[in-house]
């Protein structure tokens, strides 16, 4: 067997997501009244990167055949924390960024502890912890707001353009991929994350660090959601404990992961696919605006896109050779 076929098979979902994104983005830009200018790309990138980070968070957990229905709430909580700590002198801001990331790590670790060491189902656990995280966010920010000396300069740096052309948020996203995703993917833990998703029993029998890998997946998920929350704070200059925001981001992260070719049964796909899934999802959502449709139709449109993406999951049916295989 030639090796490239295996590589193709491994990355098929990612490549499909990439193609979908390019197609959607070309349609979007070619119909945009301003055309393909750095400003259009910058706005699109800022919105896309926030979702891409949350989608990466979801991808880590989904790869282990779990699900994290609290990512949106971790994201909202980090946004609210960020609106308190990202201000003052440069040193304080630095500490603030660390505090936001620590919040995300702690939320992820709590999920991981309960799911792995408490041996509860991820769905129920993360719905319940999501309520807790949202409660804390609501306690921090009963009304949307920010601190007076918000570090707007730093925020503008991250949401602006590098050399006046490349959106800084995309550079940041690339850095996250290179510094976190690639090293993790190549480590023993990363391999175990995939192995657990394919077959937890086989991974356990092979002596892989099953528990540590699942725990790491939840913790890294929390970290990614925190990056997303940080970016939302940079983007809006404020924090808001919005239930709709939390629910939507959870939902969109799942949609992005599915569009990005990550199997919900675990063990297949990559966080990079999830990123392109997220960018494609955003581009599709924005198509409504360039075609001047009533924004009232946006929820229905997004729902139909999600439904369509979900039905691709049925493609597996064409591969089964025996009706019994359907039930596994």
């Amino acid at each position: 067997m030639k090796e490239w076929r295996f590589i193709m098979a491994e990355h098929r979902g990612t490549l499909l997501a990439f193609t979908l994104f390019i197609a959607m983005f070309v349609i979007y830009v070619s119909n945009h009244p301003a055309g393909f200018t750095p400003n259009v790309v910058q706005t699109a990138a800022n919105k896309g990167v926030i979702l891409a980070l949350v989608a990466m968070a979801q991808a880590f957990v989904v790869l282990t055949a779990g699900i994290d229905l609290s990512v949106g709430m971790i994201f909202v909580l980090c946004n609210c924390v960020g609106s308190y700590v990202l201000g003052g002198a440069p040193g304080q801001v630095g500490l603030g960024v660390c505090a936001v990331l620590a919040t995300g790590l702690a939320c992820g670790a709590l999920n991981g502890l309960i799911v792995i060491y408490g041996r509860l189902q991820p769905i129920v656990t993360t719905i319940a912890t999501g309520a807790i995280f949202f409660g804390i966010a609501l306690w921090l920010r009963p009304y949307p707001g920010t601190i007076p000396d918000f570090a707007a300069d730093l925020a503008d740096t991250f949401t602006g353009k590098v050399f006046g052309v490349v959106p800084a948020s995309l550079v940041f996203l690339a850095a996250v991929v290179l510094l976190i995703w690639v090293p993790v993917r190549r480590s023993v833990i990363g391999r175990t994350i995939y192995a657990v998703g394919s077959s937890e029993m086989a991974a356990y029998m092979s002596g892989m660090p099953v528990r540590r890998a699942r725990f790491t997946a939840f913790v890294l998920g929390g970290l990614m959601a925190a990056f997303g929350g940080l970016f939302l704070t940079f983007f809006t200059y404020s924090g808001e404990a919005s239930l709709a925001n939390g629910d939507n981001y959870t939902l969109f992260s799942i949609a992005s992961v599915v569009l990005g070719g990550v199997s919900l049964y675990g063990g297949r796909g990559s966080a990079i696919g999830a990123i392109f899934g997220a960018l494609a999802f955003r581009a599709i959502g924005d198509l409504l605006f360039v075609f001047d449709l009533d924004p009232l139709w946006q929820p229905l449109f997004q729902g139909l896109v999600l439904g369509l993406a979900v039905t691709f999951g049925a493609a597996r049916l064409f591969q089964i050779r025996n009706r019994l295989e359907m039930f596994t």
Partner: peptide, 21 residues
């Protein structure tokens, strides 16, 4: 179609929301 119930029902939830909105 053998799609996980979690995402099918999430999708139906959004579609219902879209219809109602």
């Amino acid at each position: 179609l053998r799609i996980p119930a979690m995402i099918v029902t999430l999708a139906i939830n959004v579609i219902a929301q879209g219809l109602m909105v």
